[in-house]
Design a protein around this nucleic acid. Structure first.
Length: 446
RNA sequence: GUGGCCAUAGCUCAGUUGGUUAGAGCAUCGGUUUGUGGUACCGAGGGUCGUGGGUUCGAGCCCCAUUGGCCACCCCA
């Protein structure tokens, strides 16, 4: 049979791993420096944990894990009309890291010191149709703080986002909005029940333009009056202050809306100019956001967002721990990797596959044994060392191996060198070769 | 879930209006005499042209179906 892997999944070669690990390391370092602690949760969660958290669309995209055991027999014996969903599957692969985190917080509430700042970098799975920048298995790197309503957290997350992308050498646009502003808008135009339809339509402004948005609003059954009232927002062009003024004016009658504007202003007051762009058309689909929402897009590459997040006031409520506010971000490292690849950032940053520093070559059992001893002392000195594992008279093979793996140094150990107590060290890039005692060799390679 | 494009060697692709043994580059392996790689030269292996059916004297090329991949919508990281 010919080998294959499931749709939307990927293998990562050593070369790709070097690049991905560079991104993971960069993000993890920033998370640590802001006081976030790492946790992990299982790949599978109970479906009761996952279902209903991501909207109807999200539920469809959940990977369900078929119950083990003779599932089909159980079902056959029950008869078609008696079958429940739980008979087929009661577990699912995690869809994101936020909901499992909420579950974790509730289960471990007695061990946790609040506010709890945690990060998590693990794969998630979605039964989506793959395309550019979209995979069925991909990694998210989340940082969330739960149990603190302070907007300082939002501010720090914004700072972290900028630090990460600076270190990765990527230019990005960080867009921010506030769910309360969107709620206010819906209230003001008298369509508070249709907030999701309205925001989803607004969100597409970039893609389909003003007419497209208006058409979609009509299709969704939003009243003409409401659509008229939304026009100043949709058509708005101006700077940050003008945008705030417009919103204050429009949302005067909405408590929630006014609160949203206040939050944006408070966050802005703690940040420097240019830290974010206030974008009222930014909606973000996940329906658990309640306050600030943000999304990061890479400059110059069309691939959707590379990072997103926001505040959710009651995510743990459904698991029995109400009134705990949280806020977090999620970095999509697969897309970040795609963007960096497309912009050739890895070359600029000089990311290369890590390889051994030195290969020890030999001619027979005896010299190979000597190499094993030599390797021990080199490794003890912290030098990554390989001994060619097979015995061959053809030293060419061993050199080719070093060359292909880009090992920068080769040591040649023959009977003669062994006797003399000196081995030849060859620099593979210059071609130079000199004899050294084992002690000198360590000095040369450290 | 809806729509578009594609499918030839391990990889990237050629393959002329359907016509005889389907090609190239790269990669792989071997060689250019005995303990020195990456650049040169010579040579070898490797493809039932995704799969199944049809049209035809004849199909890699045309038609239908099927599977897989890519892309867009939807949604999102």
């Amino acid at each position: 049979m010919k080998p294959s892997i499931p749709k939307g999944t990927r293998d990562f070669s050593p070369d790709e791993m070097a690049k991905r690990n560079f991104i993971f390391d960069t993000i993890r370092e920033v998370f640590h420096r802001y006081g976030y602690q790492g946790i992990e949760t299982p790949a599978m969660e109970n479906l009761t944990t996952l279902e209903g958290k991501y909207g109807d669309e999200g539920d469809k995209l959940l990977f369900r894990v078929l119950n083990s055991g003779p599932v089909l027999l159980t079902i056959q014996s029950k008869g078609a009309d008696q079958i429940k969903r739980a008979d087929l599957a009661e577990k699912g692969l995690r869809y994101d890291l936020t909901v499992p985190f909420a579950r974790y917080v509730v289960m471990h509430q007695n061990e946790i010191t609040f506010p709890f700042k945690r990060y998590q970098m693990q794969p998630v799975w979605r039964a989506d149709r793959p395309q550019k920048g979209r995979y069925r298995e991909f990694y998210q790197c989340d940082a969330d703080v739960i149990g603190s309503p302070s907007l300082v957290n939002e501010v720090e997350l914004v700072l972290m986002i900028h630090e990460v992308f600076n270190k990765l050498g990527l230019k990005v646009v960080l867009k921010m909005n506030n769910r309360k502003i969107l709620t206010g808008l819906a209230e003001v135009v008298g369509e508070q029940d249709r907030i999701i339809d309205i925001t989803v339509a607004l969100d597409k402004l970039d893609k389909i333009g003003i007419e497209g948005v208006n058409n979609e609003l009509v299709e969704k059954g939003i009243t003409a009056d409401a659509i008229d009232m939304l026009q100043p927002i949709i058509k708005f062009e101006g700077n940050y202050n003008e945008k705030i003024d417009l919103l204050k004016n429009l949302l005067m009658s909405s408590n929630t809306g006014r609160k949203g504007i206040e939050e944006v202003e408070e966050i802005a007051s703690m940040l420097t100019a240019g830290s974010f762009e206030l974008d009222i058309t930014l909606a973000r689909g996940l329906n658990y956001y309640t306050g600030a929402i943000f999304e990061v897009k890479a400059d110059g590459v069309q691939i959707g967002s590379v990072c997103g997040g926001g505040r959710y006031d009651d995510l743990t409520g459904i698991f029995g721990l109400p009134n705990v506010s949280g806020v977090g971000v999620s970095f999509g490292i697969d897309r970040i990797c795609d963007v960096m690849e497309e912009l050739k950032r890895f070359e600029t940053l000089g990311i290369r596959t890590s390889s051994s520093k030195v290969l020890l070559t030999h001619f027979d059992k005896n010299t190979q044994k000597y190499c094993m001893g030599l390797a021990s002392s080199l490794r003890a000195a912290g030098i990554s060392t390989e001994v060619y594992p097979d015995i061959t008279k053809k030293i060419v093979k061993q050199f080719e191996y070093a060359n292909k793996k880009q090992i920068p140094f080769v040591v040649v150990v023959g009977e003669e060198e062994m006797q003399r107590g000196q081995v030849n060290l060859k620099n593979m890039s210059t071609g130079e070769q000199h004899p050294f005692t084992p002690e000198q060799l360590i000095e040369q390679l450290v």
